[in-house]
Write a protein that binds this DNA or RNA. Structure first.
Lengths: 156, 156
DNA sequence: TATTGTTATACTCTATAACTATA
DNA sequence: TATAGTTATAGAGTATAACAATA
């Protein structure tokens, strides 16, 4: 127990964290369900987002950006090649490496995900009074800054 | 993104969703890392939380509460028995079934997780002005209500 | 000698289907 | 016949280590 905090404070903090964790779980669940409809898995989708950010890249760079092992990227790219979202192209100057590149299908899939995310943000926020949205964003920024100060880093 | 330019509505919504998704990813990552230190995995921990809520239960009830298959619960309980967090006890009236029950180690593990969560909520929120915490909670509640209206349900 | 990506192997999580023991 | 849980099997994601081809 922490004697120098008023009794009700802890309950307020716990209630706030409960909401954050509940929201985290619900958003995760929803995203994963939506992905399956496009023939994608969460990890393969994460690779597509990374690839869009990096442009055509050797697997080593993708592994570094995603913070996973080279072996994991081999498996994810195998799956994405099999389902037609990316290709392994020759690297122009290093014959050990590939350039993982989007197919038209892969580009269309990421475009669609992006559009869905924009629509989703409208459904979540468009009806909110501006002051409530401002309050939410201020609170989230505060939490993100605290997490950063605690040493947590974005996985992206 | 350029913070000096007046943002349109869509950009405001997208920025808010970006923060939510970033926070989701960071909280997930942090929780999973913390678990490994206790010899637990995310799914096994989820089972322990469920078991605390239900009390000693047959695996079928655990599967229903966790929304996973009976086979998955068999595997999770196997792992938790092997690492000493739970036991399979005889069911008093149904010899087909077990009552999955906490060991002292399992109870201590969940107690510890609960204490860590309380400490974490203090680190996140104790420094915040009350008005900011209120604004955050109001925004989160609004989002949760919207998700509920969209048909999303808590995984718990 | 160092690096890129693969094969070999292993563990977790998830699932469906077939099966055993019991209800 | 129906139910509780297991075995059998499979696929995704993750990892380390050994190895190939190339730098």
């Amino acid at each position: 127990m922490n004697a120098h905090l008023p009794a009700g404070e802890d309950a307020r903090f716990a209630a706030a964290l409960d909401r954050l964790l509940l929201l985290t779980a619900m958003l995760n669940d929803d995203m994963h369900r939506g992905l399956a409809a496009d023939g994608l898995t969460p990890s393969r989708t994460s690779l597509l987002w990374t690839l869009r950010r990096l442009g055509p890249s050797p697997q080593k760079d993708i592994a570094a950006a995603m913070k996973v092992s080279a072996r994991t990227v081999t498996g994810l790219v195998d799956g994405l090649v099999a389902t037609g979202f990316v290709t392994r192209e020759e690297h122009p100057s290093d014959r050990r490496a590939f350039l993982v590149s989007f197919t038209a299908l892969g580009t269309a899939a990421v475009d669609k995900l992006e559009a869905e995310q924009r629509d989703f943000s409208r459904r979540l926020f468009a009806h909110m009074p501006a002051s409530r949205l401002d309050g939410l964003v201020a609170g989230l920024d505060d939490v993100l800054a605290t997490l950063y100060a605690l040493g947590l880093r974005s996985p992206f």
